[in-house]
C-alpha cells in the first residue's frame, strides 16, 4: 500500500517537474522567436539532444535570421509584417498558433476600459464621444489582430490604464504569453499619451526604443508601441 502511495507521489512530482521545465523551455523558445510547440520535442529522448544542437546553430527569428545581433535599435517595419516562421524543418502541429495574421476584419477584440475596480467587459466600439478616443491596433505575438480603444478621460485616473495579460489587474488585456500579467501603464501627457513599463519580463518600446525601468515616454499619434511580442499602433480617433 505504501509502495502505491509513494509511487503516485513520485509520479506527481515528476509530472510537475516536466511541466515546470516545459514552461522554462517555452519561454526560451519564445525569446528566440520560435513557437512554444517545439518544446514538445524536448521530451523525446535523442530527439531532444538533436534539437538542442539545431537550436544552438539555427538562425533565430528574433535575431533577424542573420545570427549576428544588431546593437542599434531598429525602427520596426510595418505593423502588418508577418511573424517570421520557424526556420527549422518539419514543424510539429500547432493547433493553437496562427501562422499568419488574419485581416483585422475577423476576431477583433474591442475592450473599452472603465474606471479601475469596475467590471470591464468587451463591447462593441461605440460611436465617437466628445472626448478624444484613442485606439491601439496591431497584432499580438501570435499574429492575432488586436484592437483596443480607450477614452482620453480614462488616462487621467491616478493609476492610468494598465496594459497586461491578467484581466483582473489590467484595464487593457493582451492575451499573449510574451506580455506580462501587468506589463505597462498608459497615462495622460498633456494632450497626448505617455507610457511606462511596469518591470515587465519582455519590455515595452516606443517606436522601437525600449524603455528603461521607471522611464515615462510620450507616444506620438501614430507611434508604434511594443509590449513583449505584441506590436500596436496608437492612433487618435
Amino acid at each position: 500500500m505504501m509502495d502505491v502511495f509513494s509511487g503516485i507521489l513520485s509520479l506527481i512530482f515528476a509530472l510537475a517537474m516536466i511541466a515546470l521545465f516545459a514552461w522554462f523551455y517555452v519561454r526560451i523558445a519564445h525569446k528566440a522567436g520560435y513557437s512554444g510547440w517545439w518544446v514538445v520535442l524536448m521530451f523525446v529522448p535523442i530527439v531532444n539532444l538533436v534539437m538542442f544542437w539545431v537550436f544552438a546553430f539555427a538562425n533565430w527569428p528574433r535575431l533577424g535570421g542573420g545570427g549576428a545581433p544588431a546593437r542599434a535599435p531598429q525602427r520596426a517595419p510595418a505593423l502588418a509584417a508577418e511573424p517570421v516562421p520557424p526556420s527549422r524543418p518539419a514543424p510539429p502541429p500547432q493547433p493553437a498558433a496562427t501562422p499568419r495574421p488574419r485581416p483585422e476584419t475577423g476576431g477583433t477584440i474591442v475592450d473599452r476600459p472603465s474606471r479601475p475596480g469596475a467590471r470591464r467587459e468587451p463591447e462593441i466600439l461605440p460611436p465617437a464621444a466628445a472626448a478624444p478616443t484613442w485606439m491601439l491596433s496591431g497584432f499580438d505575438g501570435d499574429g492575432r489582430p488586436v484592437r483596443l480603444t480607450f477614452g482620453g478621460a480614462d488616462l487621467d485616473a491616478a493609476e492610468g490604464l494598465v496594459i497586461g495579460r491578467d484581466s483582473s489587474r489590467a484595464h487593457l488585456v493582451l492575451a499573449d504569453a510574451s506580455v506580462s500579467r501587468v506589463h505597462a501603464r498608459l497615462s495622460a501627457s498633456g494632450d497626448g499619451v505617455a507610457v511606462e513599463d511596469l518591470d515587465s519580463a519582455n519590455g515595452s518600446a516606443v517606436d522601437g526604443r525600449y524603455l528603461e525601468s521607471g522611464e515615462r515616454a510620450e507616444v506620438p499619434n501614430g507611434g508604434e508601441l511594443t509590449f513583449g511580442d505584441a506590436r500596436l499602433r496608437l492612433t487618435r480617433g
Binding site: A76, N202, G203, G208, E224, D229, R231
Partner: peptide, 10 residues
Amino acid sequence: PATEGRSDDG
C-alpha cells in the same frame, strides 16, 4: 542582451 533594444524583442 542580443535582443535588447530591438523592436521585435520578446
